[in-house]
Write a protein that binds this DNA or RNA. Structure first.
Lengths: 160, 160
DNA sequence: ATTGAAAGACCTTGGCG
DNA sequence: CGCCAAGGTCTTTCAAT
């Protein structure tokens, strides 16, 4: 499982560019990595076919459209039967307000990132999707004051 | 601050589509929302100009290219002078292995999501970028067993 | 793997309802 | 605000290397 796919520095350069800006044109990327547009196009197709490039997503300013409150939930679950847990993870990830779910080791079992309109909305989400479930033992809620997201390659350019 | 921008259902539909797949062509989006391509194009330009659409980023299968280990760090900081804290947040977000940083209320002050090659790499990151800093009092590390990310609009389609 | 060329599709703007 | 039309640009394929 998790077959290792090896990429050369050009592939990494393409991925790095697309992670920063998925709206770059093929022509722009080709120029940046020093390839002809057709070669670059082939590389990108190959990266997609090999399951390295999974897709692209718009980054939206959710604050600007009324989602003024963000929170991180630390969820403790009961008896950890893997199937039940995975189902709950999937169900949680399917909640529109949920941005990400992490099943983790340690004090909390789940770390959940949610975006909501206001406190009442947050209360509704927690009560509806967490406190209601038998598998959930406890939810600790942290308000997010500030957040920064990184869209680059987890590898300094100097490393390749 | 955080001026409220109001969008109609068509704007939401466009955003919803682009959040799921930023590589949809303007023509495809126009067809999906029932507009002429030129009208749709104008809407998207406007969304960008108003700061709602911030950009787009490729989703890359990091597991497939050798980043086999993901962790969440819960960081406790010392005396919380806002300027020092914000600087540390920015510095942390600039570390290539860091995917996201959340400054939160509650037990932990920072929640940090990192992606690394292996345990040694994780150790290096923590020791280099966290334990070394005077502002950091304690780091609790949780391994990520499973994760799901949500790229949709935090709002069910039926709500609009 | 990479390239150049060609055809077709798309983006983008401007003028008009 | 939305639509049509036109020009210019880009994507996409393919034969050749």
């Amino acid at each position: 499982m998790a077959a290792e796919i090896d990429l050369d520095r050009t592939d990494f350069a393409i991925l790095r560019l697309l992670m920063k800006d998925a709206w770059l044109s093929n022509k722009q990327i080709a120029a940046a990595v020093g390839l002809a547009p057709s070669s670059c196009h082939e590389r990108i197709k190959s990266l997609r076919a090999r399951g390295v490039l999974l897709g692209a997503h718009a980054e939206v300013n959710l604050q600007a459209i009324g989602f003024a409150l963000e929170a991180v939930l630390f969820v403790q679950l009961g008896k950890l039967e893997i199937e039940v847990v995975d189902n709950f993870v999937s169900a949680t990830a399917a909640v529109p307000e949920v941005r990400g779910v992490f099943l983790v080791s340690g004090r909390a079992d789940l770390v959940v990132d949610v975006v909501v309109h206001d406190m009442e909305h947050l209360k509704a989400i927690i009560s509806q999707h967490f406190n209601r479930h038998a598998v959930v033992q406890r939810v600790e809620t942290s308000v997010v004051f500030n957040r920064k997201q990184q869209y680059g390659m987890p590898l300094a350019s100097s490393d390749m």
